[in-house]
Structure formats: structure tokens, C-alpha cells
Design a protein around this nucleic acid. Structure first.
Lengths: 130, 130
DNA sequence: AACAAGAAAGATAATAATTATTGATTTCTT
DNA sequence: AAGAAATCAATAATTATTATCTTTCTTGTT
């Protein structure tokens, strides 16, 4: 039985994810932690994000411009993605959809375990910065 | 002023997409058409999928295992993705969610133009093939 | 039917995000 | 403190997708 050892870098990655609403990409995390952990490598960020995701500690909530975006907020919620700047914003309105999903019967589908709802549009900042 | 010329390959790609419920990837399309069009190249498939998507003729409906999956069925609907085999299945139940999206106000969001709802779970085939 | 201009094609090289590998270092267990 | 196990950084490898470049089609016009 393999346990997971403690890792200072992993904790830093997780705490950064917890503390921000940026829904950052691996590279954003890497750049943000680089000053405090100069010997951090991008591979470590990728590896630990994957680990944390498998753990169920964090979630990949969207792929924006080909980059996976992560969130440590695990309470069920959706996301808005700005089509211009790629910003990801939390949307705390999902109960209705959860109810729908729970009662949904789809031909060819045995069970629904989760769903991902992403709204697309224009955020305030992009709208006023034309 | 640039017009779009007729292209036999592009038509074949589009018709294949129209005729199938596979929600295929670029490579699937490439392999499917290879026998009828031996000189087809993968780049052409990618190029035309992008063109058709910009046209509004087809849509990318999901990314499964890192591969973009396309659909020529443009009526508003959602999709189910099997977490085991990656199969993509149409879900024709979206009116309620559309209504919700239309009346949603999100802090920091100016306008919502579209949304993508993807259900995840296990399909019939994978469930019975354990 | 031939022609010319622009679009599309195939082939190949190039990108870019992510994953795997490896040898050195850190953390855990005892 | 010592051996075992996990992590780390650096680097190489993968993989999906995009760009480039030359040739081949399409199409409107003589």
C-alpha cells in the first residue's frame, strides 16, 4: 500500500489554488510560485496538478486556449469563460441543473456521475475595453 | 475579397459528419475517408474542420482524451461523454438550461452568448463489459 | 476550350501543451 | 540516524494541432 509523502511544492501549489479565483493554468501557477521557489520546475506543477486531480483535491474546470484551468473550490458550481480574454468566473447557480441531471434518462447511458456547465460570453472588463 | 471554392474533400468531411452520430475526431474522419480518398491528408481534415467551424457549419462539442470532437448537428443540444470509452452521445434536453442561462446574472459578466453542458458517466456498453 | 488568379491540397516541418524518464535529493519510517 | 520510498529538476519524448511551401483544382473570363 503506497501512501503519498508530504511535498512542500505540492502544498504550495494547492494553497495557491485555494487562495485565488483566477482558475489558473499550470504555467500561471509555475510563474506565480517561481519567486518563492526558484527551483520549481514546470513538470512538477503538471505532475502535482494531476496528482491533486486524481486525489479529488482539485478539479480541471475548463480548457481555455488549449490550456487546462484548475480550481480548488470543490463545492458544486459552474463557470463562465470570457471569449475574449479567457477569464474564468465562478457561477454559483447549479441546483436546478443538478436536479435535471439526477432525473435524466439518456438512451445508451447507464449512469451520470457528473456534469460540466460552461457559459461563454463577454466579461465586464472586455466589454468596456473595446 | 476572398470567396470559398468548392472542395470535394471538404464536402466529404461535412457529409461524413452529417451522417454519423460518432462525434468524431479529426483522425477518425481521416481514417474513415482514407479508403475513398487515398490522397487525403490529415492536415486537410484539420484545415477543413476549422473552416467549417468558423462558418458555423459544424461545432466542436467536446474534447475527449485531448482530441477535439465534432458534430454537424447544429440544433441546440448537449452531450454525454463516457468516462471509460470516450463515446459521445447526444442529449436532447436543454430547454430548461437555456431558460436559466437567459435569465442568469453573473457578477463580472456582461453577456452570455452560449453555453456547453457535458454530462459524464458510464455508457451502457462499458457498464456491461466489465 | 484555353487562361489566369486565387483557393485548396499534400507533404512536411514546426508549435505547444503535456507526459515520461532519470539520477539526485528530500521526506518518512523505524 | 539509516534505509526505504517518494519527490524533485532537468531533459527528452509524445501528441495533437497548425503553419509553410509547392503543386493541383476551381472558377470566372476570354
Amino acid at each position: 500500500m503506497r501512501t503519498q509523502n508530504y511535498s512542500r511544492k505540492r502544498q504550495a501549489i494547492y494553497e495557491l489554488l485555494l487562495s485565488t479565483k483566477e482558475h489558473p493554468s499550470a504555467e500561471w501557477i509555475y510563474n506565480s510560485l517561481k519567486s518563492e521557489y526558484p527551483d520549481l520546475s514546470l513538470g512538477t506543477v503538471y505532475r502535482n496538478l494531476k496528482l491533486l486531480e486524481e486525489n479529488g483535491t482539485v478539479k480541471s474546470v475548463a480548457v481555455v486556449d488549449g490550456r487546462e484551468r484548475y480550481d480548488a473550490l470543490m463545492s458544486p458550481h459552474s463557470h463562465f469563460v470570457c471569449s475574449k480574454c479567457g477569464r474564468v468566473i465562478d457561477v454559483f447557480f447549479q441546483n436546478e441543473i443538478s436536479n435535471i441531471a439526477d432525473n435524466l434518462r439518456i438512451d445508451g447511458v447507464k449512469e451520470i456521475n457528473s456534469f460540466s456547465l460552461i457559459y461563454y460570453g463577454i466579461c465586464d472588463k472586455c466589454f468596456f475595453n473595446t
